[in-house]
Design a protein around this nucleic acid. Structure first.
Length: 250
DNA sequence: AACTTTAACAACCGCTTCTCC
DNA sequence: TGGAGAAGCGGTTGTTAAAGT
């Protein structure tokens, strides 16, 4: 329960200053303490969102670049409306930014294309999304236990793929499973450029696995797919020239 | 006035921690 | 001491209101 009588609506500059000072002093996290520490009459979630979507120093503002849009479309095609995961692969962009852009710009263009009877833009009429693994893993969960639940039709198709056993994790089994899963997905996308998405992910995962042998294959992948801010090929130039750098990986 | 853009809220979910038995 | 349920928290996403053009 949030305390009664908390302020709502647009933030004023004074509040921003208080919040910024508080985060600078105590760091991110412990959001339930932030209103108290900052002396703000706001609920914890309001403070958190204000920081993450607006005040955080590394937030990139302004128009989305073409390569960002391209990557966004690819990831949306792969993941569905998992805005936080998509934003995690777009440095400086927040889930809110991505979501707003998608609704404000991308869907509008999509409708425009359809109305003009032109070739469909780079999106699908029906998203076939891969539901990523849980954002956090319970300590009680076996290391390789996957918890995939159906998102829409795609997941039911995917469920027919033989998933690696959680009880006997074999090296590469998870990669192989993802490989076939993404290959299925890529096949559905053959008429578009998005077929590269799955291969990009697989190539990245393999590279990641090689680079971090000390980790299990899924560890690296999960971290990446969860949208962490670690080093990931997606962020370092793989996508600078969409659709052109994929070939050398194949 | 209509449309677009964007910040913020509300609802929901999953996980962790706490409390009780 | 361990299990079950409740409560709290952080995080995500859909929606909407307000500001801007």
């Amino acid at each position: 329960m949030e305390s009664l009588g908390v302020r709502k609506g647009a933030w004023i500059q004074e509040e921003d200053v208080l919040l910024r000072k508080c985060i600078e002093k105590y760091g991110e996290g412990k959001w339930h303490l932030v209103p108290l520490r900052a002396g703000l009459n706001r609920c914890r979630k309001s403070c958190r969102l204000r920081w993450l979507n607006y005040l955080k120093p590394d937030i990139k503002r302004g128009e989305f670049a073409l390569d960002e849009v391209d990557l966004m479309i690819r990831l949306h095609n792969l993941l569905g409306n998992r805005w936080s995961l998509i934003a995690g692969r777009l440095p400086g962009r927040t889930a809110n930014d991505v979501k707003n852009y998608w609704h404000g710009h991308h869907l509008k263009k999509k409708v425009q294309f359809q109305e003009e009877g032109r070739d469909k833009p780079q999106t699908h009429s029906k998203t076939k999304a891969i539901k990523p693994h849980p954002h956090k893993f319970s300590k009680a969960l076996p290391k390789f236990e996957l918890k995939t639940t159906a998102v829409d039709t795609f997941d039911t198709q995917v469920s027919t793929s033989s998933k690696p056993s959680s009880t006997s994790p074999q090296p590469n089994d998870d990669i192989i499973w993802w490989e076939s899963l993404l290959a299925e997905h890529a096949q559905m996308d053959q008429e578009t450029d998005f077929s590269a998405s799955g291969e990009m992910l697989i190539a990245s995962l393999r590279a990641e696995e090689t680079a971090t042998q000390k980790k299990g294959p899924m560890d690296g992948m999960i971290e990446q797919i969860q949208g962490g801010e670690g080093d990931f090929p997606f962020d370092v130039g793989f996508w600078d020239t969409p659709n052109t750098q994929v070939n050398h990986l194949i």
